[in-house]
C-alpha cells in the first residue's frame, strides 16, 4: 500500500477524502451531469452512467457551456456533488460553482489543480485520496 503526497494549487478551500473516480476525458458539467442524481449522462464519455456523488473526482479540465457553474451549484444543492475535485487545470467556471457552493450552501468541497506530478500517472479509480484545498495538497493511498 503506497502513500503518495503531491503538491498543487488550492483553488477552493476545504478538506475532504474519498474514493477516486478518474476520467481521462474532459468533463462537460452543463448538460453532461445530472444534478438530481449525481450521474454522468454525457454519452460521449467512458464514465457515462457513473455516479460522482461523494467521490474524489479527477479529470483533466472542464468543457462546455458557461452554465457549468450553476450546474455544479445545483449538484451541490441536491447533495450529489463529489467530495473533492482534482484537475490538471481548473477553469474559472468550475471554481465559481464550488465557491458559490461554499458561500450559499456551506459546502466543503476542495478543488486542487496544477499538481507537481501528473495526477493521471498517479491516481487510479478506486484509490483513497485526501484533498487539502487550503494547502493545495493531495495524498493518495493506492488501492493496488
Amino acid at each position: 500500500m503506497g502513500r503518495i503526497v503531491i503538491k498543487g494549487r488550492g483553488i477552493v478551500d476545504g478538506l475532504a477524502e474519498g474514493e477516486a473516480l478518474v476520467s481521462l476525458e474532459q468533463i462537460v458539467w452543463s448538460h453532461g451531469v445530472e444534478p438530481s442524481r449525481g450521474i454522468i449522462n454525457d454519452k460521449k464519455v467512458r464514465l457515462h452512467g457513473q455516479s460522482i456523488k461523494g467521490k474524489v473526482f479527477v479529470y483533466p479540465y472542464g468543457k462546455g457551456s458557461t452554465s457549468s457553474s450553476t450546474w455544479i451549484l445545483e449538484t451541490i444543492r441536491c447533495g450529489n456533488a463529489p467530495c473533492a475535485i482534482i484537475n490538471r487545470e481548473t477553469e474559472l467556471i468550475i471554481a465559481t460553482g464550488f465557491l458559490y457552493g461554499q458561500l450559499l450552501y456551506g459546502a466543503n468541497i476542495p478543488v486542487v489543480d496544477n499538481l507537481e506530478q501528473d495526477p493521471f500517472e498517479v491516481i487510479e479509480t478506486g484509490d483513497w485520496v485526501k484533498v487539502d484545498g487550503y494547502q493545495g495538497l493531495v495524498e493518495i493511498h493506492k488501492a493496488k
Binding site: S65, W71, E74, I76, R77, Y100, L104
Partner: peptide, 10 residues
Amino acid sequence: GSLHDAGLEL
C-alpha cells in the same frame, strides 16, 4: 433550464 433552483436562489 441551466440555472436550476440553485441559480434561482442565487
